[in-house]
Amino acid sequence: MSISVNNISKSFKGKTALKNISFEVKKGELFGLIGPDGAGKTTLFRILTTLLIPNHGEATVVDFDIIKDYKSIRNNVGYMPGRFSLYQDLTVKENLEFFATIFGTTIEKNYDLIKDIYVQIEPFKDRRAGKLSGGMKQKLALCCALIHKPKVLFLDEPTTGVDPVSRKEFWEMLKRLQNKGITMLVSTPYMDEAAICDRIALIQDGEMLEIDTPKKIVKHYSKTIYNVKANNMYQLIKSLKSYQHNYSVYPFGEFVHYTDTRTDFSPIDLQHYLTSKNLKNISIEITQATIEDTFMELAK
């Protein structure tokens, strides 16, 4: 096991941030931590990177205890905090060189590991890090976290504030790194990114809701979901919410995800109801449950 967490709890001044968290990450796994802001993701990262001490429970990273062997952990992991935490007044190259030096290595020694990513920012290697775009900054931060060939990589919301194209690129890079045998724990508030992970854990209010592969997690969702669409979104949501048989109503892009309390639900009834509410161009179709639906259901 690369990471093993056993019954971890943490509270700040009486406010609980994490409640009895337990999970394991296998060697070489890409493990996603999915949850909204304030769910406790960053606290969990800080505990595992030995920056915080939990109130209860124990955890090991690369078989080192997070409290007793914190020095060994610090030698063996890479950490990319949620906020951009590089030196803005240093150039791209200087930042990378600095992190290589403090980990007792050189860029050349581990170049093969960062090559794929570094070639993308290399044209800007003499630019100050503070002047890079959001996506570039994240790529540089990833390079800096990787430069010492860590066994485990912790990435706290690496794609927050990054454009969709760069986000996709970033996850592809993580997938490639996985092939090089690096265990990764990644957190994100974006449910759509979760599907790329080997396994994901849904976390909310400091509690683990579910841990499984993205495919299986969706299967936990037992209800049939309907994509409902009409000419007036606002009116549609309002009408659905006041429909007496509604179980859940969530806007989802251009559709509304709707589930019904009845087992013998027929879309025709709903169609009639919505027409009576003056809605036009109504379409109702069965759709697949997404991780977001599962999350909403579990968080209910």
Partner: peptide, 13 residues
């Protein structure tokens, strides 16, 4: 303040 201390702490320095 910039959060770089976090990285420095999680390093062998």
């Amino acid at each position: 303040e910039l959060g770089t201390m976090e990285i420095l702490l999680v390093s062998p320095l």
